[in-house]
């Protein structure tokens, strides 16, 4: 799941030479997007007579619907020197693909959140490593629950059971150890040395 944060205005303004069309994506609606900041920025540029038009809508990553929705803004986009897109990276690329001759400015940075389905980020994360380790770890993912994604056990960085990188995050391997003890599966730690395969995306890219 992706969320966005608006880039610093100072970083954006130099890109807005000439007139600008604002295309704002609500994201996946219930998934965070910087609504208030974008609205304020829009008002500012409107006051400065920089905008040829704007559209706030959802799912701009869907090119078919975006085409339908932008039909009535054709003139405004034509008049603009720059299309400013407030969305995740997918949305920006969709727009850039639709208007290859226009300068498209990516106005947000995109972050990933745990979970795929729905709109609520999950407690658990899955990095889609393609070689599920959960059988060895009592169902706690070492790739996402450990800051270093270690797969052979705890590092020396845990302090009071917390991670060295984030003292608010419990050490993943501490949790794994506890879970395995609980379910009587400490034998899982005796498995052979685990090595990651970083080429699992081959399967998907075929």
């Amino acid at each position: 799941m992706l969320i966005t944060e608006m880039k610093q205005k100072d970083a954006l303004l130099p890109h807005f030479s000439g007139k600008v069309f604002f295309l704002v994506c609500h994201g996946c609606k219930e998934v965070h997007f910087p609504e208030a900041e974008v609205e304020a920025f829009k008002a500012e540029l409107m006051a400065a007579d920089k905008l040829t038009g704007y559209l706030t809508t959802d799912y701009i990553c869907n090119p078919e619907n975006l085409t339908l929705r932008l039909a009535k803004h054709a003139q405004a986009i034509d008049d603009a020197d720059v299309i400013a897109v407030f969305s995740c990276g997918v949305g920006v690329q969709t727009v850039a693909g639709m208007y290859p001759a226009k300068k498209v400015v990516a106005c947000c940075d995109t972050y990933a959140l745990p979970g795929f389905q729905g709109v609520t980020p999950l407690e658990y994360d899955c990095k889609q490593c393609g070689q599920c380790y959960l059988n060895l770890t009592g169902g706690i993912c070492p790739i996402t629950a450990c800051s270093k994604s270690l797969i052979n056990g705890q590092c020396g960085g845990a302090k009071n059971g917390m991670c060295e990188v984030d003292p608010n995050m419990e050490c993943g391997w501490e949790r794994i150890q506890r879970r395995l003890a609980q379910i009587g599966r400490l034998d899982a730690l005796k498995c052979s040395v685990q090595l990651r395969n970083y080429a699992t995306d081959d399967l998907v890219n075929q």
């Binding site: 880039k7 920006v92 498209v104 995109t110």
Partner: peptide, 10 residues
């Protein structure tokens, strides 16, 4: 399409 790198280069 997007790796959510948090520093959009597009």
């Amino acid at each position: 399409a997007c790796d959510a790198c948090a520093q959009c280069y597009l």
